[in-house]
Write a protein that binds this DNA or RNA. Sequence first.
DNA 1: ATGTTGACCGACT
DNA 2: GAGTCGGCCAACA
Length: 110
Amino acid sequence: MTNSTYLRIYKIIRRIPPGRVATYGTIARVSGASGARQVGYALHAAGDNALPWHRVVNARGTVSLAGHAAITQRLRLEAEGVRFDQRGRIDLDRFGWSPRRKEYAARRRP
DNA sequence: ATGTTGACCGACT
DNA sequence: GAGTCGGCCAACA
């Protein structure tokens, strides 16, 4: 795991538009990281970098954080218009984003 | 060198 | 749906 892989991961994350989310797995594939867990590790290591880290969720569309950080992530996403259902899940067909496929997810109004 | 631990994922009961 | 179970692999101790 080179440092440039970290940089590529951060670069992708910076591309996620407001109001959309990307999954660890998607970022891993696009950035060339060896796996989804490495993306999580990179974010953990990034700490308080100027990254929209809150726009990264797991493949199930839920927040993969515990405690206070989870609240912060959810509040930031909701402030951007991302909707959570009653079980705390995001509809990835609606809010999920992936690079390259520009019109991947239909963007309709929440 | 060896074992454990995850901001995970997919397949399978 | 909900649980379990491996697989994954870099970072630690």
